[in-house]
C-alpha cells in the first residue's frame, strides 16, 4: 500500500483529502504543521508528499527543500491558494515538485493527479 504524507493546517481540507485518498486505497499520514512534516519525512517511508505552502512553523518551501535533501526520489504535490505569491510558487516548481494544485480545487481531480504522479 502506497503511503502519502499530507501536510495541511486546515482540518477540513486535510480530512477531505485524507478521506478521498484512503478511499482509493492509499495509506495516509496527516500532519498540521511544518515541524511535524519534517519529522514525518525523516521517520516514515513515503511514496508521496502533499503539502500546502502556508503552514505553521516551517513553510512549504522549507519542507520541499528538506524533502529534496533527505528523500530526493519522493514526488511532491503542492496544494496552495492562487493568491499566494507567484515567487513562492515558482520557487516550488524550480525545486522540482511533481505538480501544483491551486485552491479552490476538486478532491477528485487531486486523486487523479496523485494516481498519475505515483504511476510515473
Amino acid at each position: 500500500m502506497k503511503k502519502i504524507l499530507i501536510i495541511e493546517d486546515d482540518l477540513l481540507i486535510s480530512s477531505l483529502v485524507q478521506f478521498r485518498l484512503e478511499k482509493d486505497g492509499y495509506e495516509t499520514i496527516l500532519v498540521k504543521d511544518g515541524n511535524a512534516g519534517i519529522i514525518a519525512i525523516d521517520t516514515e517511508t513515503l511514496d508521496l508528499i502533499i503539502t500546502d505552502v502556508m503552514i505553521p512553523f516551517k513553510n512549504g518551501i522549507e519542507i520541499i527543500h528538506h524533502a529534496r535533501k533527505t528523500k530526493p526520489d519522493v514526488p511532491i504535490i503542492v496544494l496552495s491558494s492562487l493568491g499566494e505569491e507567484e515567487k513562492i510558487v515558482l520557487e516550488a516548481f524550480n525545486l522540482g515538485v511533481a505538480d501544483f494544485i491551486p485552491k479552490p480545487f476538486n478532491p477528485n481531480e487531486l486523486a487523479i493527479r496523485v494516481k498519475r504522479v505515483l504511476r510515473a
Binding site: D10, L12, I13, L16, K103, P104, F105, N106, P107, N108, E109
Partner: peptide, 14 residues
Amino acid sequence: GRILALNKKMKGDF
C-alpha cells in the same frame, strides 16, 4: 462556518 469555508476552497460538483 465549515460549509462556507469548504465552499470557498472546493470547486466543481462539490
